[in-house]
């Protein structure tokens, strides 16, 4: 049995998700190799080599891999697939983009958003916005899956695997090409891995209000900032703040929902948080059905009071 983990990374650095996918791979068992597919990605590869339980790190580099274009990542992984029984990627936007392409090239299904490895061929995954959990057994020759990283605890970093260069796929004839990127660098923790998340909803009413209310509270708590779809659609917060069924899935120790009603699609992204706090002026808002602590009131008074109480 051998498992290939496709690393989450930004070329220079390894993403937090990788150590969690390695943890999932350990539950499958066998040798675990990590593929870093990028360009100028020695930094990420060296970091991956430190992850516990990794046999070796495979480093594939080309321009097309620098932006992790699905076509190039797929061709690279398919070239390596012969040596592996399972291929795991994190449920990041990059992982979700290339993993099904890899699966189809290998003529197997992809198992999306795995939250539990029951055995080498049996997995649990949420369906219907997390309102049901499906246990599936795969008869496919190779298992290709994305791992919901909030469900796995990162492995340690005391390893010393070797880094080995492997053949990288470049841009083939009919291709996608990278034009540009708008990625906002923030000093706040990353939403998906954060210990505390403060999210704002439609109640904010404007981007200005979102900055003025949600961000200072988050900064006081050292928290990441999230948002409901309504807040993102209205332009109060950037799209990558969206928490939910079709946004990011988070499971922090503390999740504070401010002016969010608690639609099932939002709950899908945060109901596995350890402690949930809701601030909403409507005592009947569904968010209170999942909140450990609720304050019924106008956020305009409650949030400033909270800032003061936090000292």
């Amino acid at each position: 049995m051998a498992v290939l983990v496709i690393a989450d990374h930004t070329n220079a650095a390894l993403g937090e998700a990788t150590a969690k996918v390695v943890a999932a791979a350990q539950k499958i068992g066998g040798d675990i190799d990590v593929l870093v597919a990028g360009q100028g990605a020695q930094g990420a590869a060296d970091a991956a080599a430190k992850l516990d339980g990794v046999r070796k790190v495979l480093l594939a580099q080309s321009d097309a891999l620098g932006h992790q274009l699905a076509e190039a990542v797929t061709d690279t992984v398919v070239g390596l697939a012969g040596g592996y029984d399972a291929i795991l990627a994190p449920s990041t936007s990059a992982g979700k983009n290339f993993a099904p392409r890899i699966a189809a090239k290998l003529d197997v299904n992809q198992i999306t958003d795995v939250i539990e490895i029951v055995s080498a061929d049996t997995f649990v995954r949420p369906i219907y916005a997390g309102n049901a959990l499906e246990t599936v057994q795969s008869s496919d020759a190779k298992k290709v899956m994305t791992i919901r990283t909030t469900a796995f605890k990162a492995v340690g970093e005391t390893g010393s695997a070797t880094v080995e260069a492997v053949t990288a796929a470049g841009a083939a004839g009919r291709e996608a090409s990278f034009v540009g990127e708008e990625v906002v660098k923030s000093d706040r923790p990353e939403l998906v891995g954060a210990k505390i998340v403060v999210s704002g909803g439609r109640a904010m009413g404007s981007a200005e209000e979102f900055h003025k209310v949600i961000e200072p509270l988050a900064d006081k708590l050292g928290a990441a900032v999230g948002a409901s779809r309504a807040a993102v659609d209205a332009g109060y917060a950037p799209n990558d703040y969206q928490v939910g069924q079709t946004g990011k899935v988070v499971a922090p120790d503390l999740y504070i929902a401010v002016g969010i009603s608690g639609a099932i699609q939002h709950l899908a992204g945060m109901k596995d948080s350890k402690v949930i706090v809701a601030i909403n002026k409507d005592a009947d808002a569904p968010i209170f059905q999942v909140a450990d602590y609720g304050i019924v009131g106008d956020y305009k008074t409650v949030v400033p009071e909270l800032m003061t109480a936090l000292g």
Binding site: A132, E134, V136, V290, A291
Partner: peptide, 16 residues
């Protein structure tokens, strides 16, 4: 190609 062994309810959260 995937056999659904079972579909279960997720752990319920109760209101606090």
């Amino acid at each position: 190609k995937l056999k659904v062994l079972k579909v279960t309810e997720p752990p319920k959260r109760s209101a606090g």
